[in-house]
């Protein structure tokens, strides 16, 4: 190993590769759950699924990906105040999404598709597993926010911020597959 291998720049590429491999691995959980939904229930979907709510929370989550991206660009240019503002917006949108799923969607679904039924199993397992990832995402973004507020990130070294935001995009992309599978497919 040469000196280059120990430099910060080199290590950040290692970490980036590690993060992407981690996300490849994590997607397999969702692949298995998505496949199980079709295996168990085909394209069967109860009519009571709340389409309006689904559309609203999906839009909120996608919007949060946009603010997350802007936050990353901001810190890459050394604009700390914009970074903090946009990151806080992202966290807020993430929490709204989480509240939409857990406090509105779940109580409704408990009535027409409890977890002891086929669709309910798929619904609660998928949204639950995704909500867990959203929760960890919010937690990591919050850590990045705290570190950013202390001035922990520079233009050259903002790996923590980058990682939390890339992970946030990953959580969003997963939802892009979960949403149609639970809300749109079938009739």
């Amino acid at each position: 190993m040469t000196v280059a291998a120990t430099t910060l720049k080199y290590q950040i590429v290692n970490r980036r590769l590690g993060l992407w491999l981690f996300m490849v691995s994590e997607s397999m959980i969702f692949l298995a759950l998505l496949a199980s939904r079709f295996y168990m229930q085909g394209t069967n979907r109860p009519a009571e699924v709340n389409q309006t709510l689904g559309l609203i929370i999906t839009s909120i989550l996608l919007l949060s990906s946009f603010t997350a991206n802007r936050a990353e660009v901001a810190i890459a240019h050394g604009d700390r105040s914009s970074f903090l503002r946009l990151l806080l917006t992202t966290i807020g949108l993430g929490l709204v999404f989480l509240a939409g799923v857990v406090t509105i969607e779940w109580p409704e679904a408990l009535h027409f598709a409890p977890p002891s039924t086929g669709y309910g199993t798929a619904f609660f397992a998928l949204t639950g597993m995704h909500a867990f990832h959203v929760l960890t995402g919010v937690f990591i973004l919050a850590l990045a926010f705290l570190k950013g507020r202390r001035g922990g990130y520079t233009v050259d070294d903002h790996w923590g911020a980058e990682a939390s935001i890339v992970y946030w995009h990953f959580v969003d992309v997963i939802w892009v597959f979960v949403y149609p599978t639970l809300y749109l497919v079938g009739s």
Binding site: Y39, M40, P115, S116, G118, Y119, G120, T121, F124
Partner: peptide
């Protein structure tokens, strides 16, 4: 999840496989 929460992944009578 089947055990602890009572889901129906592997219970064919409840819609699982």
């Amino acid at each position: 999840l089947d055990r602890v929460v009572g889901m129906a992944f592997f219970a064919p009578d409840q819609g699982g496989g």
